[in-house]
Every structure is written in structure tokens, then in C-alpha cells.
Design a protein around this nucleic acid. Structure first.
Lengths: 229, 229
DNA sequence: CCAGACGTAATGTCTATACATTATCTATTA
DNA sequence: TAATAGATAATGTATAGACATTACGTCTGG
């Protein structure tokens, strides 16, 4: 079992051992890995223990299993690192900076894209009084009527919504645009500077709760994602 | 157990049921959920079955568990959608387009950032003869000596590496910059246009395998990430 | 040569039980 | 009151066995 972590539970050591062998290339994509019965013997344990180890590898996307056929190493995927798209308020306060949201504008409007009356907000996120992001948000009032009476100078709309409405689905789109005149002013950057745009749409069941577009200074703000040990 | 999927295994129905109750706000963040013993009685099953259901919720980040204390609903996290950062070659061919990588430059150099001799490449990814991305890549020759003899006009370096070297860790940084003169020419975009930048660094164990910087036209290319059912 | 039937090898699920581990709570003691 | 020690309730891990499910291979019969 190579040089595997002592103190770890057996099922964890088994999954880690197999993971290492896959990552080292000893077990190659498409190749069949030993059947549960053989692994029982190899590690001298019950089938449930082996099964738990293999279930973990399925969850991590490292193997796939087919009844009667066996378990097979999957192709490595570059396409599933975990992306951290933070709640800006949480991110700023987490690193000990003073956070502030400046509400610029709030109107109830009709929106073609979203159902029913919509609360349209614009504002700026500040960290230590430095503008971090410009935000344009729409909140579906039929789903979140309370939004109309909430005070977004105390809490950012995003943070408030997170507590107020449990979502069931989120979708993000990340792109880049040149700063519009308004964004230049709000973020204090040069005309036409490259900005990172995060668009987020949040659903509860089948109705859109909120759609938001956050614009960051592309050179100072970066999203990070990592995958692996 | 509300209106839960028939045909699903019991442990899956239990976890889904609890997930629904959390998402619906019936079980709120910080709140304690019933202990395994009670859930056994509620669902009329063995503790291992309940345990499997709860383990899944831990994996999904919906609850956390503490011995002696119980299981608690975690704060909803916006920060872990799965980001699809594709192998460009795979992405292009997957949607049926003709893919081509044009190698512009290849030199063996020394690099302060990476250990040992490094193969430095620049090139352009094309989809249907339209430039999609400009790429600057460095490959650590001490880790991947074969890279020096590989033909990157047949396969993109990224795709080739994926097959040649199993990685153990990947890190991505996503930002935005204004197009440099060279990028303008290569991608056929206007001077100073906003570009989306994906920087990826790949490790095998403790050594960097490759570091790459891919630059996309920010207005036509977007990364997407989603989370939820 | 092909279509269909079928045995069977593998995974999938579930149970009942046992003991380990650990943080919380309580009771005791200084 | 405060520190310490111990009891205990919850999760964590593991076992052995049972039956369900599925699709791979093979063996038919046409």
C-alpha cells in the first residue's frame, strides 16, 4: 500500500492508494482496476470498506463503475476545478478589511428577461474605501417581496439575498469588457481599461431570484480555481 | 418524505429529502438536523443507510458533522460551482468545428520561475480558421523531456501534455487585460480590446509540469460555471 | 451469420452489530 | 469560582452477510 498516511481510516487509505496509482500513470485511463473482491483480499478487509473507497473515487470523478463490467479509470479532466466565486462582502471582511456597499440607484421596473416586477439596483463594493467592483443587480420581487424594504446600505444585496432566499441553482458567466464611462468613474480606472465581468443568475426552483453583473478592474482582481491535493 | 423520486435507493432519497428541506429553508444554516438514530426511525432503516445519506450531504458541503454534537446545516456557499476550463482542442472539436493549432515559436530557454531548461512556445488556437486564443506556454523539460520532440502542429501542446503527463495539481487564475499589439494581430481584434486571460499552472507531485497563459477575445469568449440540480 | 435467450460476474443496496473516537456536559475537587 | 476529571451522546469506522440489479458473453436456434 505504498507509503500511505498512518492514522487514516482504512477506506480512506485504500482510495488514496488507488488515486496515487492512477495519478502516477500505473493505472491508465480506460483501464480496468481490480474488482472489489480482489481489493478485499489485497487490503484484507470487508467489501463494504472497499466499496466506500471506490464510491469516493467515483465522487471525485477519477473512476466510473459499471455493473458486471467492473471499475474503470476515467480520462483526466481539466474541466472541473472548483472555482471560488465569492460573496464580495464575505471575501473582504474575511481578510480583515473594512467593507462598504454604496447604493447608487434603486428602481422598480419591468424587465423583459425576468418575470413580474423587478427591483433594479446599482452600487459599488468598497474594501477599505477603495472601489472594488461595480454591480448591477435585478431582484425578482414576486420571489423576494422583502427586497423592497431591505436596507442595502447596511448589507450588500448579494449578502442579504443569500440569507433571505435559499437558492437551488446558480449559473455564472465570466467574460471581459472594456470599461464603460460610468464604470471608469465608479472604479476610478482609465477609460477603456479591461474589466473582468462576472454575471450570476440565481434560481429558486424554476424562477429566477436575481441576476447580477459585477465588474472588476481586470488587472487587480483575479478569480482563482484549483484542483488536486 | 415529501414527493421524493421513486426508484431511487433509500439512502439517495433520504439525502435528497434533507437537501430539499435545507434548500426550502425549513432547516436553516447553523441549525441542527435530526441525529442518525432519529432519522433511522423516521425512515425506518439501518443506521448505515442514514449514514451514507449524510456522508453525501457532507461531500456536497450542505452540512457539517461533529462527534458528540450532531450534524448542522452549513451556510449556503456561492463559492463552489464547478468551473469548466476546457482543453480548447476538445472544446472546439466537441462542437463539430475544425480545430487547428498554429505554432509560432519554440525555444529552449532558462526560466527563473521554473526549474531547469524550459521549452517556451507561443501559438494560436483556431476554430474553423478563426483565431480563438493566443497561447504562451512553458514546459519543464526535466519533467517532460519528450516535449522537445513532439509535433505540436498535429496536436495542441495542452492536449498532448494531458495524455503524456498525469498531473496531480492544477491552479487557474482568471483575469482581464487590454490586448497587446501582438495579441491584436494574432486574434484580429482592435488595439486595447478587453481580453480574458486564463493562466494555468500544472504540477506533477512537487514539480511544475507546465505553465500556460491563454488570451481570449473577452467579448466573444466566456467561461461558464453552474451549480445546482 | 445473426437474433435472441440466459447464466453469471460484477456492482448496488441494505441490515444488524460492534467497537473506536471525540467533543460536550456534568460532577467533583482545589 | 475555576480547573480538572470523568460520563456520555453523538458520529466514525468496520464487519459479515444477504439479496437486487445490470449488462457482458456465450450459447443457442433459426
Amino acid at each position: 500500500m505504498s507509503l500511505v498516511r498512518k492514522g487514516w481510516p482504512l477506506h480512506r487509505r485504500i482510495s488514496r492508494d488507488l488515486e496515487d496509482r492512477i495519478r502516477a500513470g500505473e493505472l491508465r485511463p480506460g483501464q480496468r482496476i481490480p474488482i472489489e473482491h480482489d481489493l478485499m483480499q489485497t487490503y484484507g478487509c470487508a467489501r463494504m470498506t472497499v466499496n466506500k473507497a471506490l464510491s469516493r473515487l467515483v465522487g471525485e470523478g477519477l473512476i466510473e463503475r459499471r455493473k458486471r463490467a467492473g471499475s474503470f479509470v476515467r480520462l483526466p479532466r481539466l474541466d472541473a476545478p472548483v472555482l471560488e466565486i465569492p460573496d464580495i462582502e464575505v471575501e473582504v471582511t474575511a481578510r480583515g478589511d473594512r467593507y462598504r456597499f454604496e447604493l447608487l440607484n434603486a428602481h422598480v421596473i419591468a424587465d423583459d428577461d425576468l418575470d413580474g416586477p423587478v427591483l433594479a439596483l446599482t452600487g459599488v463594493h468598497y474594501a477599505q474605501d477603495r472601489a472594488l467592483a461595480f454591480e448591477e443587480r435585478r431582484i425578482c420581487l414576486s420571489v423576494v417581496p422583502d427586497a423592497q424594504t431591505a436596507d442595502f446600505t447596511v448589507q450588500s444585496p448579494g449578502h442579504w439575498l443569500l440569507q433571505a432566499v435559499p437558492w437551488t441553482r446558480v449559473e455564472h458567466k465570466i467574460s471581459a469588457v472594456a470599461a464603460s464611462p460610468e464604470v471608469c468613474v465608479r472604479l476610478g480606472i482609465e477609460k477603456g481599461a479591461a474589466c473582468l465581468v462576472v454575471e450570476r443568475r440565481t434560481w429558486k426552483d424554476d424562477s429566477v431570484v436575481t441576476a447580477v453583473r459585477q465588474i472588476f478592474d481586470g488587472t487587480t482582481y483575479r478569480l482563482t480555481a484549483s484542483f488536486g491535493k
